[in-house]
Nucleic acid binder design. Structure first.
Lengths: 191, 191
DNA sequence: GCTCCTTTGTTGCTTAGTCAACATTTGAAA
DNA sequence: TTTCAAATGTTGACTAAGCAACAAAGGAGC
């Protein structure tokens, strides 16, 4: 039984979960008050009340932390819709598309200044998350899933990116209704 | 230079401070939802997200935790009035009396049901705190301080207990104005 | 150029927290 | 009363976090 993404984190040592939680909290609150580049590792560990050396036991540097933070935010969006522990269905796919579109739109509006700067980092991170999730959904398939999963991943991300960059965004539902079949067609065999 | 009560806790290992903080938070929130007797050590450690064995590394049992919790609440009352790092003066004494009276009155109203049950525990704990604080205030005296400090401690606690049990409480200020000179007279030599 | 100060990573040793297992105790239901 | 589940304390071996000290890399100002 291939482990789902959520289970992996839950059986970590409680100290590790706690420490990462503290680092993340501290980082997020620092991001709210100043730009990413002006945040030092010191700042993060001071606010988190952990030792600086402990930080390096968990993250290579602050860029790895940013990456982790993005992962967590996206994961939260996924779990809000209970998509993390399930299998492929057209309805789940539709909700996944919705989640990605909303996530990117949020990034665009809330992290306005930093978004440009980190767009490619976000893209890489999120696409990996989408791909892993789709692979998990298709875990019981007897045929290889990596090609269809790749196509779907890029299509979904592309759609979301397109939507979040539009000057005049159409209604979310309408947009997704229109886009959905084009993605679903590649996954029909798994329904 | 005798250490003041606050400094002692601040140079503890960060892990110790964090763990005790988590235990205390958990305990206080459990107290708000159910009675002390129905709270198990399990409950506390589960909510605090620490191991049960860790609890026993810090507290002998849940009664010791209750004691610690009371100490902390009282300490907060003292620090709110900046009385923890200073020396004896009539004005500080007056504020100390105010603090004790308000603390006991609060205990009476907020922890109504449990107060009766734990009154003697509270009394012992708080009197020790008052005594230690007074001893710290008089740390530079050339004459022995334990007798006057003992008398003042019992007097202050007695006054506060009396006030908090009264059916018709007089105005706080009026009560303290009346009581203050009777306590201060024993400490005049240190002014 | 140079200096001075801050931040970055890294390391070896110490201390605190985790875990599973165990013997006891307790309390409520059969 | 007996039984059974749950809570209490305790232990020893393992793992994570803290700390101080270090070399090295910027960056700001002279």
């Amino acid at each position: 039984m291939s482990p789902n993404p959520k289970e992996l984190e839950e059986k970590l040592d409680p100290r590790v979960k706690r420490t990462r939680g503290l680092i993340l909290q501290s980082f997020d609150s620092l991001l709210a008050e100043k730009g990413f580049e002006s945040i030092s590792v010191q700042d993060v560990t001071d606010k988190a009340q952990i030792n600086r050396a402990t930080f390096y036991a968990h993250f290579q540097d602050k860029y790895a932390l940013l990456d982790y933070s993005i992962q967590k935010m996206f994961m939260a969006e996924i779990e809000k819709r209970t998509l993390s522990v399930c299998s492929y269905s057209p309805n789940n796919l539709r909700n996944l598309i919705l989640a990605v579109v909303e996530f990117l739109s949020m990034m665009h509006s809330e992290c306005a200044q930093s978004h440009q700067q980190f767009e490619s980092l976000i893209e890489g991170t999120i696409k990996k998350q989408i791909f892993d999730l789709l692979s998990y959904w298709l875990r019981n398939s007897k045929v290889p899933t990596d090609i269809p999963a790749t196509v779907a991943t890029w299509a979904i991300y592309g759609l979301a990116s397109h939507y979040s960059h539009m000057k005049k965004r159409p209604a979310l539902e309408k947009f997704v209704d229109e886009a959905f079949p084009l993605v679903a067609v590649n996954l029909e065999q798994f329904a």
